[in-house]
Amino acid sequence: MNDKVATRDAYGKTLQKLAPKNPNIIVLDADCSSSTRTSWLAKECPQQFFNFGIAEANMIGAAAGLATCNKIVFTSTFAIFGSARCFEQIRDSVCWPNLNVKIVVTHAGLSVGEDGASHQAIEDISLIRTLPNITIIVPADGIETEKVIAKAAETYGPFYIRLGRAKFPIILSKDYKFQIGKAVTLREGCDATIIANGLMISESIKAAEILEKKGISVRIINMSTIKPIDKEAIIKAAKETGAIITAEEHTILGGLGGAVAEVLVENFPVPMKRIGVADFFGFSATPDELLEYFHMTGQDIAQAVKETIDKK
């Protein structure tokens, strides 16, 4: 955990790599291009970039129209506006007709910090997860982001890819091979498993280190694909470690924690605890202050692991 890269920066760079080589890639933004980093491509290949202004619903509809004409369309804006604001357009114009639109949102979760509740998308995964046909990915770091964007560009169908504003520690190695729907074990352990994604991976690693000192061995799984979720990895972890803790920068209602709970209760129920925002709106503060307030730090996760192990 040395270098830090914002996943949005990795997105901007990857588009700069892919789009000039593939004229079918078209990138749309809703007046957030300098923040989402699609402006980097816009400067280089202006003909492949269209700004739709502050009108997300129209942007999604136009993306659908472009996709019917064999275009690979990326739409970007902040997570809250790119999901909840245009949810029905994503449902009816993209997912129902199963079109090749990649919704890549940035500034997701609590880590937009000071902007406060209006800009902290902490319910987007729950919403989008209800839609058939779409693949949902929350990359762990800059390296995974590059691979996810490249994979989305070459894989037909709707994608929702959730990125952050803040710089995340680099977790994965350059030769890491990303597969859609395949979770990756980042750390082996036998007493409990933390299933996390995005920013919460680094908090989970902190938790595992705290617990290691106390003689508790914790497995960490990077569940970057939330849909389709890796059922096998979840069931295997439940069988082998007997306790599951999920950690996400999102409400605990219906996101990663919800998805994991669904798999567990129907297949191999074990004691479980969901770490995330427990049915509250956020507020203005630094990302670190917010993680602390909502009990989402490495220390909090470590505490939750111990309590969950006690329930075995």
């Binding site: 136009a62 659908a64 129209g65 019917t68 004409c69 009816d92 114009s93 007709p97």
Partner: peptide, 28 residues
């Protein structure tokens, strides 16, 4: 439902979305 009927260019029914889709096709 464009996935079920030959000759349809887009699925629709929820009002207000078609002109946006048309913009996308026209841009393409």
């Amino acid at each position: 439902d464009m996935t079920r009927t030959t000759g349809l260019e887009i699925s629709s029914g929820s009002l207000g979305q078609g002109l946006s889709v048309g913009c996308g096709m026209a841009i393409a």
